[in-house]
Nucleic acid binder design. Sequence first.
DNA 1: ATAGAATGATAGCAAGCACTTGCATGGAGG
DNA 2: CCTCCATGCAAGTGCTTGCTATCATTCTAT
Lengths: 192, 192
Amino acid sequence: MDDTSQKIIDATMSLIRDKGYVATTTKDIARLAGVNECTLFRKFQNKKDIVLHGVSQEKWRANVTPKLFQNVQWELEQDLQMFMTAYMDKITPDFVNLSIGLRAPQLYEETAPLIMKVPQAFISSLTEYFRKMEELGKIAHYDFESLAMTIFSSTFGYTFLNASFHQNLTKTGREEFIKNSVKIFVNGISER
Amino acid sequence: MDDTSQKIIDATMSLIRDKGYVATTTKDIARLAGVNECTLFRKFQNKKDIVLHGVSQEKWRANVTPKLFQNVQWELEQDLQMFMTAYMDKITPDFVNLSIGLRAPQLYEETAPLIMKVPQAFISSLTEYFRKMEELGKIAHYDFESLAMTIFSSTFGYTFLNASFHQNLTKTGREEFIKNSVKIFVNGISER
DNA sequence: ATAGAATGATAGCAAGCACTTGCATGGAGG
DNA sequence: CCTCCATGCAAGTGCTTGCTATCATTCTAT
């Protein structure tokens, strides 16, 4: 990937994050990238092509892989905190807004599978983690998929709400939210 | 509101839900509403004006008011289930998609406050509910705002994920999700 | 029955859109 | 020094956009 192409991709993705795909014009892109408009079409077939190159890049892609779940200590509270922190590190407000900006009918078919990968990876890995924790005798049996969905929903929900409404919705900061939520989850599935 | 204007508003809001504000053209609107394009501009000042009339209508607005929280039984598990069920009844996938379709820079200033009202109402009412439950001696003291945020995040997260990915993300159905989540929350804040 | 209001049909406006063409320029490598 | 490739520049393509103007038609209320 030459330098000019990369500048074009970066400009495109930034604009989509801020204004959405349809509202992002090729003139905008050229201006922000600091290149002539016709250069876009020398490097890429069309506007959509730029985006598809963008979403295929590591840089513009959240990298939530099962690898993230290998670094566990088999201690429920610590591990859950680590999972949530890792998710929020990867899924920044910028990334959330980019994902929404990509929600155009013209792109949906190609980009939706990519966007969906992150939640899927998180949920299935978390479910698998719980299964192993049960094997190790550290937690009781449970509907682990439903539990993973509860934990992921709240992690995702907080991330999204924060990206959309900044700090206007709650005073609860990120670390505080994670600590308190994890405590509830841990306590919530413990036997009495 | 005369019939023609209402048809125009309905068509506009449906299209925004499906394609987003920028991708929705006035020709699209006229076709779907079954009226001539120039009629749009006889009834409304411009395209944006149609949307602003739309979002001010009960019909195109989720009605999550504190009233919803008056119908409580002061029984934690039942009440939380009722809150989550009521939220998901109001915030349908259609409404979620509409909210995202309204996220255009041209509209943001005017529509964002309206969209933000729903989470704000939910969180503050829930926090208030917990305070009263403490007064009644039904639950122990806690950081209630943080707790409300955890519960709202997971409710919102599930709703949003469901609207975006349909059933491709989890097999956990709505009732099951609510029941299991509430159990964890209730158990999670109980003393042992 | 008739006036007045609402709507349709048609045409068109300027502006903006994604995208193209032809040619000039500049810088790197042999 | 020359060649070649990447890029800039200016102009322009056909099409779509939001929006308007004019006039004909239909509906409604008295």
